[in-house]
Design a protein around this nucleic acid. Sequence first.
DNA 1: TAACAGTGTTTAAAAAACTCAACAACGCAA
DNA 2: TTGCGTTGTTGAGTTTTTTAAACACTGTTA
Lengths: 196, 196
Amino acid sequence: MNSLPEQLVDGTAGDSGFDVGARLRAVREANGLSQRELARRAGVTNGTISLIEQNKNSPSVSSLKKVLDGIPMTLAEFFAQDEPPQDQVFFRAAELVTLTRGAVSFRQVGARAGHALQILHEHYAPGADTGRAMLRHDGEEGGIVLRGRIELTVGDRREILGPGDAYHFSSRIPHRFRNPGDEECELISACTPPYL
Amino acid sequence: MNSLPEQLVDGTAGDSGFDVGARLRAVREANGLSQRELARRAGVTNGTISLIEQNKNSPSVSSLKKVLDGIPMTLAEFFAQDEPPQDQVFFRAAELVTLTRGAVSFRQVGARAGHALQILHEHYAPGADTGRAMLRHDGEEGGIVLRGRIELTVGDRREILGPGDAYHFSSRIPHRFRNPGDEECELISACTPPYL
DNA sequence: TAACAGTGTTTAAAAAACTCAACAACGCAA
DNA sequence: TTGCGTTGTTGAGTTTTTTAAACACTGTTA
């Protein structure tokens, strides 16, 4: 049942919001390689390269990786061209987006997507807690306490930090923030990549 | 003819030098999604997610993109790696390393090397200036002003920021900080990667 | 002109990914 | 306990990608 084996992804940007075919063709030509030469280096056939470049098929990650190895180029480099522009530089206090998660509020600097860095001005009400289920995600995070006290648990370590104290850890370690006092706690944090 | 339809990519990191399965599982769990919930949002079946996470198949770029759209996360973010060693987590106020550059002082959270994130508590004396020769380096940086005023020039844009105001830009754009007032200026900044 | 070496494209068969539906395991409430 | 809802995994069948080989086109050489 294939009366219309037309290209399933449309000819231009495809269904992926990222024009894999055009990107591969540009990269290949920028390196002065023919389809056949790249195919030989990559250990695939020239037909595969042709079809990918025309967006007539969507390569598997493993075959795309093989092809890029023949360039050579990493997957991250290949896709690291789609980051949106987004270039607001200055943010007035009133412009900071405020996010609320129960007794914790975050004032976020700029937008979340397309950046490698996220900066938050966080406020923890007395007793506020990010939850018993510990947080875990990629990247690193750190911060400095401005006011009040915060109890921070990272893996099997736990400390109570006060004004001027700071922290920095890999976000892959399970972690939890809790305000154990009667006073609001205020801190500024940064993390990479953004995760909220 | 499929006498050995075993997994072609080995169980761990696969043939791609990048463990797509483990990475997807980590990302999904970090966002608190079940395989089924992610599958529903992405418009694929839960079986697909399961097989990908076990590295029993290598998804096509278009299906991986669909899956990531349900997170949401871009392909570039997915393939961007990170490697944090070093593990001091808590830093008492007195422990913060202080660096001085003329009329500007930085109190640094943790060590500089081997991290993707650097956090600084900066103090600019009245008139302090990072110099007429504009700064330029890789990464992104941002911060929030706590006290005083700072004049920030980024490319051809210039603003004076006060308490609560913030900034965020690509460090590749030439930039310069200057305290134009009579009062000390204090701010907390973050940048990635570290550059001092 | 013909013969050749290079290019990218296209087709049928083989291989791999994807779907659908069933399965086993766990936690939780009745 | 039973029952229900959830989790992740698995097998049979369908769809898509990949291969291998042929095709059409270009520029060069004889």
